[in-house]
Simulated scan of single mutants.
Amino acid sequence: MTDLKEIQKIADDFSRTPLNLKPFKKRSRKDVADGLRAVFWYHTVRHQLGEKSSYALEKRFDEKGSFKRNADGKLIYPHRWQKYSHGERVPIPSLVVNVEKECKGSARKLNHVLWEALRLEQPVCPHVEVWLRELNPDIQMVVFHIEHREFDVIYKREKIGLRLLGKLSDRASMDALACLTILFREAVELERFHDAFLLGREIHWMLLFLGIEFQRNGVGKELIKLYCDRIFPMLAWDEQCFFPERTDYVGASCFLNLSPFYHPAHKGKSLSWETRVRCMRRLSSTRGNWAVMFGLDIEYGPNPDSQDIPKKLLQEYERRKRIVERAKEAISLGISDVGFLFGRRPPPNTFFQR
């Protein structure tokens, strides 16, 4: 359960904290995803065990007597956990096993398939089926369906569509994000651009939903930046591309995650993650608020690298751009009426009051 004060504290931290990840040495074979998983693992362990510092964790899991005093009596130790907290070093397997004994589930967070899906050294297609099998059962039940053939059971993939994406969004989690990322990269490699477009938009919304939760574990801004720099640019279709840099992911994630607590039925209450996701999903859909649905959606349009852009495409982009700008204005004013987005009505009463 999460209360309003806790979310506000994380939101403030999300807005103010600069990028924390330190780069690996130039000769290192480590990827930036390794730094992210080390930081994420560190904060997972720290939160679950209730420790407040890297020093406390270093002392707690010191089995080799690494704490010593030099000739001047000054205490010296390797500062390994401080390096984990900045993503400068990845924990060795033996330490991960020892920590897992006290902090169940931490090893899976460190070795989660999401980190593999974020690496670009190799194509994803040869690994898709294996990686999807590593996800939680509830996600696998969405992605696969069972076919019985005589004495055998065959697992077949569901088709990419709004129904599948809606089910994954309802189960917003690290595993759902990993699933979307794997499917997105597969669709790009197979040149199924329509599927990739739908998956890319869903990844965008998933980052907005999960941004604060990743920030709780120290990698909110860094993970979003990695998606903007590495994942979204993979897709270019019909002279178009995504513009993730135009989204204020921090502000949008804070807005969406705080909104459920201001609902009249939820004021003063602690909310489960499932309740928060349900509220955020509704707010960002046609059943909820049109301004949020248009204003916080990922922007896309003519690819700057394309030379011959059809006139019709430019006209559609300009029209969509005006709606998005109007939607963002509506969010700032607290307006939910769809007519305002298309400039047909004066501003009605606010939809969201603090």
Rank of each mutant, 00 (worst) to 15 (best):
N111I: 05
I92G: 10
R80A: 09
K109V: 07
K156P: 03
V113F: 01
E158F: 04
E121W: 00
L110G: 00
Y84S: 06
K167A: 09
W115E: 05
R157K: 15
P123S: 03
W115R: 03
E129H: 08
V143F: 13
K109G: 09
E158H: 09
S94F: 07
E129I: 13
S85C: 01
V124Q: 05
R108H: 08
P126W: 06
S106P: 00
Y155H: 11
P78N: 06
H79A: 08
I146D: 04
L114F: 07
C125L: 10
P91N: 12
V142S: 08
G161F: 02
V130R: 13
N98G: 13
G166L: 05
E158P: 02
E134N: 08
E147S: 04
L135W: 07
R163Q: 15
V128T: 08
L132C: 11
E102L: 01
H127P: 02
V130H: 07
E121C: 08
K159I: 09
V90Y: 05
A117C: 05
A117W: 00
L114H: 04
H145N: 09
P126L: 03
K101H: 10
L168I: 14
H148I: 07
G105P: 11
H148D: 12
P137S: 11
V142K: 11
E134P: 00
D152V: 12
W131R: 03
I146P: 00
W81I: 01
E100I: 04
Y155D: 15
K156M: 10
V128K: 04
Q140T: 12
L132H: 13
L120G: 14
R80F: 03
N111Q: 00
K109D: 12
S85I: 01
N111S: 05
Y155W: 15
V142I: 12
W115C: 01
L132K: 00
C103E: 14
Q122E: 08
E88F: 06
H86A: 02
G105R: 09
V113N: 02
W131D: 12
V130E: 13
C125N: 12
W81E: 08
E88Q: 13
H127C: 02
W131P: 03
F151E: 14
H79R: 14
E116F: 04
E150N: 11
P137A: 15
G87Q: 06
C125V: 04
I146V: 15
E158W: 03
L110N: 07
R89P: 00
V128H: 02
R80K: 05
N98Y: 01
K156L: 14
R89V: 13
V97T: 11
W115T: 07
W115K: 08
R89W: 06
R119G: 03
P137C: 06
F151G: 15
E129T: 14
K167C: 03
P126F: 01
G87M: 07
Q140Y: 10
I146Y: 05
K167P: 00
P91T: 11
V143N: 02
Q82G: 12
